[in-house]
Protein backbone atom coordinates (compact mmCIF):
# COMPACT_ATOMS: atom_id res chain seq x y z
CA UNK A 1 0.00 0.00 0.00
CA UNK A 2 2.89 2.35 0.73
CA UNK A 3 4.26 1.56 -2.70
CA UNK A 4 0.85 2.38 -4.21
CA UNK A 5 0.79 5.81 -2.53
CA UNK A 6 4.34 6.57 -3.66
CA UNK A 7 3.50 5.58 -7.26
CA UNK A 8 0.36 7.78 -7.24
CA UNK A 9 2.23 10.83 -5.99
CA UNK A 10 5.15 10.39 -8.38
CA UNK A 11 2.82 10.02 -11.38
CA UNK A 12 0.85 13.13 -10.29
CA UNK A 13 4.06 15.12 -10.06
CA UNK A 14 5.18 13.97 -13.50
CA UNK A 15 1.81 14.95 -15.03
CA UNK A 16 2.18 18.45 -13.55
CA UNK A 17 5.77 18.65 -14.82
CA UNK A 18 4.56 17.62 -18.29
CA UNK A 19 2.06 20.48 -18.24
CA UNK A 20 4.74 22.92 -17.02
CA UNK A 21 7.05 21.84 -19.86
CA UNK A 22 4.44 21.74 -22.66
CA UNK A 23 1.90 24.40 -21.65
CA UNK A 24 1.12 26.66 -24.61
CA UNK A 25 0.79 29.86 -22.56
CA UNK A 26 2.36 31.19 -19.38
CA UNK A 27 -0.98 30.87 -17.55
CA UNK A 28 -1.03 27.10 -18.12
CA UNK A 29 2.34 26.86 -16.44
CA UNK A 30 1.08 28.92 -13.50
CA UNK A 31 -1.91 26.57 -13.08
CA UNK A 32 0.38 23.54 -13.08
CA UNK A 33 2.62 25.22 -10.47
CA UNK A 34 -0.40 25.78 -8.22
CA UNK A 35 -1.52 22.15 -8.47
CA UNK A 36 2.04 20.87 -7.93
CA UNK A 37 2.28 22.91 -4.70
CA UNK A 38 -0.89 21.35 -3.26
CA UNK A 39 0.30 17.85 -4.25
CA UNK A 40 3.58 18.45 -2.41
CA UNK A 41 1.53 19.31 0.70
CA UNK A 42 -0.22 15.95 0.42
CA UNK A 43 3.11 14.19 -0.02
CA UNK A 44 4.47 15.85 3.15
CA UNK A 45 1.46 14.57 5.11
CA UNK A 46 1.93 11.02 3.82
CA UNK A 47 5.61 11.17 4.76
CA UNK A 48 4.70 12.31 8.27
CA UNK A 49 2.40 9.29 8.67
CA UNK A 50 4.95 6.81 7.32
CA UNK A 51 7.84 8.06 9.48
CA UNK A 52 5.76 9.21 12.52
CA UNK A 53 7.68 12.51 12.60
CA UNK A 54 5.70 15.66 13.37
CA UNK A 55 7.82 18.28 11.64
CA UNK A 56 6.62 17.23 8.18
CA UNK A 57 3.20 18.69 9.08
CA UNK A 58 4.81 22.02 9.98
CA UNK A 59 6.51 21.90 6.60
CA UNK A 60 3.11 21.25 4.98
CA UNK A 61 1.50 24.31 6.62
CA UNK A 62 4.39 26.60 5.65
CA UNK A 63 4.40 25.21 2.11
CA UNK A 64 0.66 25.85 1.70
CA UNK A 65 1.04 29.47 2.90
CA UNK A 66 4.00 30.18 0.61
CA UNK A 67 2.24 28.56 -2.35
CA UNK A 68 -0.84 30.76 -1.87
CA UNK A 69 1.16 33.98 -1.62
CA UNK A 70 3.34 33.02 -4.58
CA UNK A 71 0.38 32.22 -6.82
CA UNK A 72 -1.32 35.52 -5.94
CA UNK A 73 1.85 37.44 -6.85
CA UNK A 74 2.21 35.43 -10.07
CA UNK A 75 -1.37 36.14 -11.14
CA UNK A 76 -0.91 39.87 -10.49
CA UNK A 77 2.15 39.66 -12.71
CA UNK A 78 0.28 37.79 -15.45
CA UNK A 79 -2.48 40.43 -15.61
CA UNK A 80 -0.16 42.95 -17.20
CA UNK A 81 1.24 40.61 -19.83
CA UNK A 82 0.08 39.79 -23.31
CA UNK A 83 -0.94 36.47 -24.81
CA UNK A 84 2.51 35.56 -26.11
CA UNK A 85 4.27 33.21 -23.68
Amino acid sequence: MIGFLIIVFISCSFMCLYRIARGPTASDRAVAMDILGIIVVGFCVVMSILTRKEFYLTTAIVWALLNFVGILALSKFLEGRGFED
Binding site: T25, S27, V31, D34, S75, K76, L78
Partner: peptide, 9 residues
Protein backbone atom coordinates in the same frame (compact mmCIF):
# COMPACT_ATOMS: atom_id res chain seq x y z
CA UNK B 1 -5.95 31.36 -5.96
CA UNK B 2 -7.94 29.60 -8.71
CA UNK B 3 -10.17 32.68 -9.03
CA UNK B 4 -7.14 34.97 -9.18
CA UNK B 5 -5.50 32.86 -11.90
CA UNK B 6 -8.68 32.66 -14.00
CA UNK B 7 -9.25 36.41 -13.77
CA UNK B 8 -5.63 37.22 -14.61
CA UNK B 9 -5.54 34.95 -17.63
Amino acid sequence: SAHALARAS
